[in-house]
Design a protein around this nucleic acid. Structure first.
Length: 224
DNA sequence: GCATTAACCACAG
DNA sequence: CTGTGGTTAATGC
C-alpha cells in the first residue's frame, strides 16, 4: 500500500507529505487507467472523490443551456476535481480522457484531513487553484473580446507551449471540439485553420499541426 | 449604404 | 468528421 510513496508522478503538493501521510493517502486512493474517450467524471453526478490526473490529457467540459462548452484541456500531473468536490455536492462539470490517461481517485475525507494537518501541502493546493482561477479569468476575457483568428491562434499556442512543448503536434481534438473550446463553430475553425495554412503561418495535415511562424501567430493572438 | 465577421445550412468527399 | 459555398444577421465605419 505504499504506491503513493513510490509514485514518481506525485503532485507538487503530495511531494510535501511524509511517508506516514503518503501511506494513509495510498490506502485511500484508487488508480484507474482510462482510454481515449472514456468518461472520468460526469456532470450532475455526486462527487465523492478528489480526482488527480497522473498522466495523460483530459478535457473538462460542461453542457451549457445551448451547447457543449469545453472549459479547458488538462495535462497530468494535475488535480481536476477539487473545486467541485469541495465546493459543491455534485460534479459541476464532466471530464473525459482524450488520450490514454492514468487517474487517481482520492477519498475526500482523507484529502481534507491532510489539508488540515499539513500546511505545506495545503499551500501547494492553493497555488494550483489560484493558477487555475487566473487561467480562467484570462480565457474568459480572451474568448469574449477576441475574434475568431485570435481565439484559434491562442488555442494553437496553448497546445504548442503548455501541453506539448513543441512546434509540431497532433491535435487531440476534432474541429468541432476545438470550436467548443474556443467558442466558435466548427466551420469557422476549419476556415481559420486553412487561412493560417494558406498564409504559411502553420502547416495542417489532418490533425497534425506544425507552427511555422510563431511570431505571426502570437501577433494574431494578441491583437485578436 | 457598404464592408466585415461569423453563425447556420447544405452538400460533397 | 471536414471543407466549402451560399445566405443571413449584426455591427461598425
Amino acid at each position: 500500500m505504499d504506491f503513493c510513496y513510490y509514485c514518481i508522478k506525485k503532485s507538487k503538493a503530495t511531494g510535501k507529505l511524509d511517508q506516514k501521510e503518503l501511506k494513509v493517502l495510498g490506502q485511500n486512493c484508487n488508480q484507474v487507467l482510462f482510454n481515449k474517450g472514456d468518461k472520468i467524471m460526469i456532470q450532475d453526478t455526486l462527487s465523492y472523490n478528489i480526482v488527480f490526473v497522473k498522466e495523460g490529457l483530459v478535457k473538462v467540459h460542461v453542457m451549457g443551456p445551448e451547447k457543449e462548452q469545453i472549459l479547458k484541456i488538462v495535462k497530468g500531473p494535475s488535480y481536476l476535481g477539487i473545486p467541485t468536490t469541495i465546493g459543491a455536492k455534485i460534479n459541476e462539470y464532466s471530464a473525459t480522457a482524450i488520450s490514454k490517461t492514468n487517474v487517481c481517485f482520492i477519498g475526500f475525507e482523507v484529502f481534507k484531513e491532510i489539508i488540515k494537518n499539513n500546511g505545506e501541502f495545503a499551500y501547494e493546493i492553493i497555488v494550483e487553484l489560484c493558477r487555475s482561477e487566473l487561467y480562467h479569468f484570462k480565457k474568459c476575457i480572451n474568448q469574449v473580446q477576441k475574434q475568431g483568428p485570435g481565439k484559434i491562434a491562442e488555442a494553437l499556442l496553448y497546445f504548442s507551449e503548455e501541453i506539448f512543448n513543441t512546434q509540431k503536434f497532433k491535435l487531440p481534438l476534432t474541429r468541432n471540439e476545438l470550436g467548443d473550446l474556443t467558442c466558435t463553430s466548427r466551420e469557422t475553425v476549419s476556415r481559420i485553420l486553412s487561412d493560417f495554412s494558406n498564409s504559411n503561418i502553420i502547416k495542417v495535415n489532418k490533425n497534425k499541426i506544425s507552427i511555422l511562424d510563431k511570431n505571426q501567430l502570437e501577433k494574431i493572438s494578441k491583437t485578436g
